Amino acid sequence: MYFAILAYHAEGIVQSWSEEEDAALMTELLRINDRLVEEKSLGPAARLGPTSEAVTLRGKGDGMVIDGPFAETKEQFLGFYVVDFPDIDGAIAAARELQRANPTAVYEIRPILLYLPGAPLSTDGQS
């Protein structure tokens, strides 16, 4: 069964990390990523850009594009992992490992009801 592990963190804290601190954290998270890929338990994963660069589409018809998400929360949605485990216990174990690498983050584990893998994207982060 597929599960989404949604990563939340206070954006101000993440943006305050030095390049070295961020690189060290990413090295540890990518180690976990590589292991889950090797075990064939990890699907798509993404680290999202800052909410200051995001827009939200709201309303009927063509809708209206407005600046950023406006959630009343201390943490922002910063990225996600799609994992495949027989039950939620495997997804919780994976999220616990991610949290050990980044203990100040919050991880939400949610079942995926519809999974459409889409087309492979370029690996350089550009469309």
Rank of each mutant, 00 (worst) to 15 (best):
M1Y: 02
M1I: 11
M1W: 05
A4V: 09
L6S: 11
A7L: 06
A7E: 06
Y8S: 01
A10T: 09
A10P: 12
A10Q: 12
E11D: 10
I13F: 04
V14M: 11
Q15M: 03
S16Y: 07
W17D: 00
W17I: 00
E19M: 12
E19R: 12
E21P: 02
E21W: 00
D22C: 09
D22I: 15
A23E: 10
A23P: 04
A23N: 10
A23Y: 07
M26R: 13
T27L: 13
E28W: 07
L29W: 03
I32N: 03
R35P: 00
V37Y: 11
V37K: 15
E38M: 01
E38Q: 10
E39N: 03
K40R: 13
K40D: 05
S41W: 00
L42V: 15
P44K: 04
A46C: 01
A46K: 03
R47H: 05
R47Q: 08
L48Y: 07
P50F: 03
P50L: 09
E53G: 10
V55H: 00
L57C: 11
L57N: 13
G59S: 02
G61H: 10
D62N: 15
D62C: 07
G63L: 05
M64N: 02
V65N: 00
I66T: 15
D67L: 10
D67M: 10
G68H: 09
F70V: 15
A71Y: 02
E72W: 14
E72Q: 14
T73F: 05
E75Y: 03
E75P: 13
L78D: 04
L78F: 03
L78Y: 03
G79K: 04
G79P: 07
F80L: 14
V83Y: 04
V83I: 07
D84P: 00
F85G: 05
P86Y: 01
D87V: 14
D87H: 13
I88Q: 09
I88F: 08
D89R: 13
D89I: 09
G90D: 10
G90W: 06
G90Q: 11
A91I: 14
A91H: 04
I92A: 05
A93C: 12
A94W: 02
R96Q: 03
R96P: 01
L98A: 08
L98H: 13
L98D: 13
L98S: 11
Q99M: 02
R100N: 01
A101G: 13
T104C: 02
V106F: 06
V106W: 00
E108F: 04
P111A: 10
P111L: 15
I112C: 08
I112T: 08
L113K: 13
L113W: 10
L114E: 14
L116I: 08
L116K: 07
G118T: 10
P120A: 06
L121F: 12
L121E: 14
S122K: 15
T123P: 01
D124H: 06
D124M: 06
S127K: 15
